[in-house]
């Protein structure tokens, strides 16, 4: 079980990125985090991953505080971040260095098969398309069998078809071992397709604004009216999260300023 207890982050330049955030995610649950820019989504994900440490509060995995990258927490970034000097198979096996070669090879081969890239095993990353590269990145994160997989806007750089393709693919992979998924996204549809619970966050400083439980059955039909309703519900929450009174002195361009240049 993953627990956040009042996790906050203030950067050295005094930017208050995240105010105390607390929530609990059960094993195997899929949580999506959405919110406007600057709401601390990525900051929070990086705190959970242990790549950055929280300035306040703590992240607990099964009762143990996470302060550095943890072997049971995997992460997929917005870019595939494959190592260009390793083949596809080498990249997928990157986190398995401690295993005997035979076991590593079978696990890599199985993962390659699973992400539909078996024939690409010996290929360099430069020869992959964006979607294929991201599939390799997901396989690389899943192959050490993490308990929690963090995804930081993993599909945002892909075209709409590839994105839908990979969303289904991710769910399929998730069903194999059912790790906890925590997904940061800008894409409301993506959140509704994937998540059991959707956290809407509010910016400046970043904090939780609303929690939406979609309760949609899987597999989810993107065309159904229930799906549409869930999307509208999230969009409405997002609107509310960003609505704030515009003070007189703030954000108003002086007259004609936009035309001046």
């Amino acid at each position: 079980m993953l627990q956040l207890e009042g996790v906050g982050k203030t950067y050295p330049n005094n930017v208050h990125a995240l105010a105390g955030v607390s929530f609990t995610v059960a094993p195997g649950e899929i949580v999506a985090i959405v919110g406007g820019s600057g709401c601390g989504k990525s900051t929070m994900l990086r705190a959970i991953s242990g790549l950055d440490t929280a300035s306040r509060g703590r992240v607990m995995l099964d009762g143990v505080a996470v302060t550095a990258p943890h072997e049971r927490i995997g992460i997929v970034f917005q870019e595939p971040r494959l190592l260009p000097w390793l083949t596809v198979a080498g990249n997928i096996g990157f986190g398995l260095e401690h295993l005997p070669k035979a076991e590593r090879d079978t696990r890599v081969a199985k993962a390659l098969e699973r992400v539909g890239l078996a024939e690409k095993a010996g290929v360099w990353p430069r020869e992959l398309s964006g979607g294929q590269a991201q599939r390799v990145a997901i396989a690389r994160a899943l192959v050490p069998r993490p308990e929690v997989l963090l995804l930081d806007e993993p599909f945002s750089a892909l075209d709409a078809f590839t994105r839908a393709d990979l969303q289904e693919h991710l769910l399929d992979l998730w069903a194999d071992s059912r790790p906890t998924l925590i997904l940061v996204t800008h894409d409301v549809e993506e959140a509704v397709v994937l998540a059991d619970r959707i956290f809407v966050m509010q910016p400046r400083p970043g904090r939780l604004f609303e929690e939406i439980v979609t309760g949609l059955p899987r597999p989810r039909d993107r065309q159904s009216s229930r799906f549409d309703n869930a999307k509208k519900q999230v969009l409405a929450a997002l609107d509310r999260s960003m609505a704030r009174p515009l003070r007189d002195d703030e954000n108003k361009a002086p007259e004609g300023a936009a035309l001046w240049w």
């Binding site: 539909g116 890239l117 590839t162 393709d165 289904e168 399929d172």
Partner: peptide
């Protein structure tokens, strides 16, 4: 279930 993505197919 085996999922073969479009691009791979």
């Amino acid at each position: 279930m085996s999922f073969v993505p479009m691009s791979a197919a």
